[in-house]
């Protein structure tokens, strides 16, 4: 099968993720969308690895997974503690970072 199709899929997934991040308010959903974007990138990386016939892309994909896992840990912890204090998981309720 033509590897380019995987790239199309990756782009599609990335766009869905990005749109989710921009549109949704629920922090958990935003978070999941970020994961989706990361995985879209992973897919693209692995596809490139296949296309170029070397392992660089796969190595980077592994890195991404590790980083994503770490990010999930920290991110979920923030969301949980935020929910505890505000009883809300909406990102718009956390708008205190303005000047």
């Amino acid at each position: 099968m033509n590897p380019v199709n995987y790239l199309y899929l990756a782009a599609l997934l990335f766009t869905i993720g990005a749109a989710g991040v921009l549109i949704r308010r629920n922090a958990i959903v935003v978070f999941m969308c970020i994961e989706l974007m990361l995985n879209a990138c992973n897919l693209a990386l692995i596809t490139f690895s296949r296309m170029h016939g070397n392992l660089d892309g796969q190595i980077v994909a592994f890195f991404t997974m590790v980083v994503a896992a770490a990010e999930v840990v920290v991110g979920l912890a923030i969301i949980v503690s935020f929910y505890r204090s505000r009883h809300s998981a909406s990102v718009d309720d956390a708008a205190l970072m303005k000047l």
Binding site: V21, L22, R25, V30, V91, D92, A94, A95, M97, K98
Partner: peptide
Amino acid sequence: MRRVQNGYARSYAVSMF
């Protein structure tokens, strides 16, 4: 210019995007 910095994470995400 500082009005652009409204504190909403999603608007920052839009500008990054």
